[in-house]
Design a protein around this nucleic acid. Structure first.
Lengths: 145, 145
DNA sequence: AAAGTACACTACTAAACAAATAGGATATTA
DNA sequence: TAATATCCTATTTGTTTAGTAGTGTACTTT
């Protein structure tokens, strides 16, 4: 179970936009350079974010991209789902009729728990949180092995 | 982010074995039939579980598969990692040198939190738990939208 | 010892997905 | 109108998924 580069790149890119919130639009070229991502590939990722209504754009010279709403109003869940597709560990969670064994299937519960755990994390963090964490030099980091 | 059918099928298969723990070995054919999984495909999945030391086998007539250790000693994490590969949300979590930005990358923390959340679930549940849940008709279910 | 059973092993394949790359069209500003 | 930056669509390359197929090998029962 690995994260796609779409999600990794995409989150980094939109975080750049969040950090620039309120200022002039940021160009693809800039983001691609800062984050070391292919220009053209990033273009597609941001297009997805735009289609999802998380980002808006300005064309022409001095154009670029910016967040469509304040960083505090964008949860990582939205970004993740946009780039990675809906977070479904098992089909039968959404469509119980899909599997005739659903009624007494203990494995189904596990996938549900897993899904809840993941959603819990992604729904609890907003872009504003990440911006703040960056500013404070990762003091809030809770990474551990 | 979807679960592979390897993980879904595999967990269901090994749960069958767990329910039969202490009894005669269970044949692929039986499991495949009960769980409605392709015979040959299941064979490969169980081979992975065997290579990981979670399952052992008996050849010849009346042979089959059985758990290599008591259900209470097998955590879902082991099963999951065996079938799905190591649970790594981002490469830089294990190899910080992989990415020059790691030091001040707020997104990295998110992936770490996510990974911890997933591991937390998978490490807290054993096959014995699942067997018990099945017996009690899912009373312990904590599935929710 | 023979026959049958069930695992063991390896190779192959079709389809889907990931991760880009490429090229031109369109809108905006200076 | 020239330069700039987004917009849109197609193509490519490689990997993974989810199987299928066929043969080999060990074991048990009769």
């Amino acid at each position: 179970m690995k994260l796609s580069s779409r999600a990794r790149y995409g989150l980094r890119a939109i975080l750049e936009l969040a950090q620039e919130y309120g200022n002039a639009p940021l160009q693809i070229k800039m983001i691609a350079e800062r984050e070391d991502i292919s220009n053209k590939y990033l273009e597609q990722l941001i297009a997805m974010l735009k289609a999802a209504g998380l980002v808006r754009s300005l064309r022409g010279p001095r154009g670029g991209y910016m967040l469509a709403k304040p960083p505090a109003e964008i949860r990582l869940k939205e970004i993740f789902v946009t780039l990675e597709g809906p977070m479904i560990t098992a089909e039968c969670l959404e469509h119980p009729e899909f599997c005739p064994r659903c009624m007494d299937c203990a494995t189904r519960d596990v996938w549900a728990e897993l899904q809840n755990a993941i959603n819990g994390v992604l729904e609890s963090v907003t872009l504003a949180d990440l911006v703040e964490r960056s500013l404070h030099g990762k003091k809030n980091s809770n990474y551990q092995i």
